[in-house]
Design a protein around this nucleic acid. Structure first.
Lengths: 123, 123, 123, 123
DNA sequence: GTGGTCTAGACCACT
DNA sequence: GTGGTCTAGACCACT
């Protein structure tokens, strides 16, 4: 069983949703180094999407260094140390924050306003 | 002259970039109620993009209630009070933050980590 | 017209052949920043291969930072300075040489033998 | 004990890795004519790979004339003279160099650049 | 059985 | 017309 929820109405490409969710699971330590991912055909059947869509997500995960694939064997979570993982997390997080905060600044938001908004959402 | 910068490599649709930047200018009070926007053909020529793309941006701005169009005369910044503007701003900001923070949570980031990252980028 | 030759007997994936050849053309300055690549459908028809195979090659080129794509407009050679280009070249070249020379060393070849073999092939 | 290191992340097929490493050992004289190779099942167990994969590597080695098999007895390093060995080595090396240098030429590298890069890696 | 490559073809957003 | 995403389905090498 894969712990992935796909939304068909969000506008976010399916492969991106899969990529985001599995990345998060690896980065948060919910999936461990060496753990096998489901075979692309199995995942496709389970999620009721095309094999190619799953493959695209797996490819991006491999490119990000979070998994590796072995022809004939399957795909596995990469052997990353705790330090590697937090580095990957900061990378993902930092790239996203750069974009997000550039937009907040463009809207003229003050630091205080942003922090207040975050606190409201984290409570 | 329009104060808009378009990036061809960011991956963000051009109409969206225009929409974002003009929205921000109106919300921040850099453009005032009644100010006229450039004619679609003028803007297209200046930005070296298609008339259709500009038209799409203007349409979205009108739909958001930030401008209004008068047939044969052009487009103008809507007559919004200070209260209306901050409401618009909170709307834009809030919708975006909901998405952003859902993602941060998915990555397992703590409130403290996020605030530290924001402060670093606002300094 | 695209200056690409595809071999169906080499065993090298088609998208890789395209990638290699276009990379070389950009790196060698045979294609210039801002030059447009043929539309993927045009290239596919010309090379008598699938649209998807061309797309995969274009994608890898974009990932390598050698081209960028604009939806609705097409794909273009990236704006790289001469310094950027030689950096890309050294990157491609260096990665490949690391692999090649590791193999030569494994076979127990001396530096002199390798240099002699190269000279024979460059004459 | 077999002196073979297998990488699961290199992308090179396992049977090819085995083939490369044993070829090198025979060619460099680290394994001698008449030396027996480990039994297929033993090697598979030690390397934690499938029997079929080892069998494929052994078959390729036999095809290359580097080993021979005797039914019921096992596989042995072929009876090759020093001259035979250096011929095999030149064959392996030459085929590989043809490919490698064709690629270097495609990238527009000069003879001097290549030699400099090799020297840096052999130092 | 597994992933890797390739195909024909559809629909979409953007220009 | 352009690239982006998604689909069903085929054949291959590797295990």
């Amino acid at each position: 069983m894969i712990d992935i929820v796909i939304s068909n109405t969000s506008g976010i490409p399916i492969y991106q949703q899969i990529l985001d969710q599995i990345s998060a699971q690896i980065i948060k330590g919910e999936m461990h180094p060496g753990d096998s991912l489901p075979a692309i055909r199995t995942a496709a059947k389970e999620l009721r999407i095309s094999v190619i869509t799953v493959k695209k997500a797996w490819e991006e995960l491999e490119r990000a260094g979070l998994i590796y694939s072995m022809v004939g064997k399957g795909c596995f979570v990469a052997e990353l140390s705790g330090g590697d993982l937090s580095e990957k997390r900061n990378e993902l997080f930092g790239r996203r924050m750069d974009k997000d905060f550039a937009y907040y600044k463009e809207l003229g938001l003050s630091l205080e306003e942003i922090i207040k908004a975050i606190e409201a959402r984290y409570r």
